[in-house]
């Protein structure tokens, strides 16, 4: 419950900052622009959101580091990290609170994209299964990306550096499938790279299939980076 208190504080400080509103508006506006204005939706003439969900992993590369960059780096820079550590909370709750705060912001941002499926449904016979699957997958993928971003934010005191390394890290992780299919990559390694690719596990959700393996992938990545986040503080405390 203490984690939720910190998440609430994070939320409150987010809505008091204009940056959060920019982030809330950015994801829906950019995804709608790519989907309706620049994408082939009208030319194809089929009521499906496959292209919208195909864009999400790449939009997350820009948006999620922007959500997570200030989470820890700003605390360190302004010297409030030590104050935070004096809260009557366990480190686990602190990390979880930061995570829930950022995850809530992502959920709000995704909420504002609801106009896209509603528009498509008003035009044609949209299958809502893949839409539900896509949003569920987006939340799980977002959770994994946020925990990754929080870990990197905890490793630096500069917000811009935190954004940059998170964005580059996520982009590289998304591009593992390119490495997997490269000629120089041995086939066995290619298979491993494909299994580890970040967005590869999202596409089944966007098709409307919730595969147990994909859920396990995102949940375990989320837990792994949250634990690493905690260990970073332990390491800093020990040194």
């Amino acid at each position: 419950m203490k984690a939720f208190l910190l998440a609430k504080r994070e939320w409150k400080s987010a809505v008091d900052s204009p940056v959060a509103y920019v982030l809330l508006a950015l994801l829906p506006a950019v995804s709608a622009a790519f989907f309706f204005v620049m994408g082939p939706f009208f030319d194809r003439g089929v009521a499906t959101l496959r292209d919208f969900f195909g864009l999400l992993p790449w939009l997350f590369v820009m948006v999620i580091p922007a959500i997570t960059m200030r989470a820890w780096a700003e605390e360190r820079r302004s010297g409030t990290e030590e104050l935070l550590m004096t809260y009557p909370m366990r480190l686990r709750d602190l990390v979880l609170g930061k995570f829930l705060g950022a995850w809530g912001l992502l959920a709000a941002s995704l909420f504002f994209t609801a106009g896209i499926p509603l528009t498509v449904a008003s035009l044609g016979d949209l299958d809502w299964g893949p839409v539900v699957g896509g949003y569920l997958g987006a939340m799980l993928m977002g959770a994994a990306a946020i925990s990754f971003g929080l870990f990197l934010s905890a490793s630096t005191r500069n917000q811009v550096v935190a954004w940059l390394i998170s964005a580059v890290g996520l982009m590289t992780w998304n591009m593992l499938d390119f490495a997997a299919t490269a000629e120089a990559t041995p086939p066995a390694l290619g298979r491993w790279l494909l299994a580890a690719d970040f967005d590869e596990h999202f596409f089944a959700f966007a098709r409307g299939v919730v595969d147990f393996r994909d859920v396990v992938f995102y949940l375990s990545v989320t837990v792994f980076f949250l634990c690493l986040n905690g260990l970073t503080f332990e390491h800093r405390r020990a040194s």
Binding site: G129, G133, A196, V209, F212, R213, F217, F224, L231
Partner: peptide
């Protein structure tokens, strides 16, 4: 702490490898 991080990474790899052998899915279409 370093050993704990390495152990965590090992657990992650083991869990992901094991999960590939499992099956179970929900078809929402």
């Amino acid at each position: 702490i370093r050993w704990a991080a390495i152990l965590l990474l090992g657990c992650l790899i083991a869990l992901l490898s094991y999960s590939q052998t499992l099956s179970g899915r929900l078809d929402l279409t």
